[in-house]
Amino acid sequence: PDGGRTPGGGETPEGLQPVPARAGNAPGVELVGLAAAWPGGSPVFSGVDAVAVPGRWLAVTGPSGSGKSTLLSVLLGFLPPASGQVLVTGRAAWCPQEAHLFDSTIRGNLLLGRPATNGATPAGDHDLEAVLAAVGLSALVGRLPAGLDTRIGPGGAFLSGGERQRLAVARTLLTGAEVILLDEPTAHLDAGSAAAMLADLRAGLRDRTVVLVTHNPADIHAGDARLELSTSAGQPRGSLAPSR
């Protein structure tokens, strides 16, 4: 349900492109004159410069077709840059807009983020409680009679829209990735639920680098770095813009 990338000096076992770290292993994400194009196609965007670091999110905006999903593909190593550089220190994990939740328990859905295979350390209750706290779900789980072992129904039907999205983000956090890519996390939420969830996420993810893709101006904080992608003819395909 969620995507992730493991850094390294060569191609990964999954066939992903290696994404180098920032100079001196400085935490965060850095885009330097970045251009991206799908094989056989013209550039989707070009000349993109941006930086995200722990404590300062990078908000990526722009109309459909401007390259927001393409940028996520480059950050995850699915698509190599056409030119310029993408630098990501540590692992990156993606929480998609339509992250699927299974007809299982809260525990079962979370554990998909860190399965006990390939040498990964099995996640204990402490790990699960930590990611739930980071996304503001501790109180909900504490009220449930079965706690972590509460079933959530097909697609998380027994949860509200905001609770489903928070659980999906918690599962992404359980990967342990240093860089979290949030793809339209508030797309299906009302204004109040969206604001409450993002307030919790900003507090819970303060030690991680976050790239937020959003169409909603209300999601963007005054202190965020902002990258606005454009499809307008004659305009730069990617430009930094002040937060509003």
Rank of each mutant, 00 (worst) to 15 (best):
L181E: 03
G223R: 13
L205E: 06
T209W: 11
H215Q: 14
L182A: 03
A170D: 01
T175E: 04
R206P: 02
G161V: 07
V169W: 00
R206L: 12
A225N: 05
P185Q: 01
L227C: 04
R164L: 15
A195W: 00
L212Y: 04
G161H: 05
T214N: 07
L229G: 08
L201G: 11
L167A: 09
A170K: 00
S232V: 15
V213D: 04
M197N: 11
D207P: 00
L229F: 09
I180A: 00
A177G: 00
R206C: 14
T231Y: 01
V211T: 07
E184R: 05
A168W: 06
E163Q: 15
A222Q: 10
L174A: 07
G162E: 08
R202H: 13
L181P: 00
G234T: 12
S230K: 06
P185W: 02
G192C: 09
S232H: 11
G162W: 05
L205G: 05
L174V: 05
S230F: 05
T231L: 08
A203V: 14
S232L: 15
S230L: 11
S193F: 08
G192A: 15
E228M: 12
E178G: 14
A187F: 06
M197F: 10
I180S: 01
I180C: 02
R226W: 04
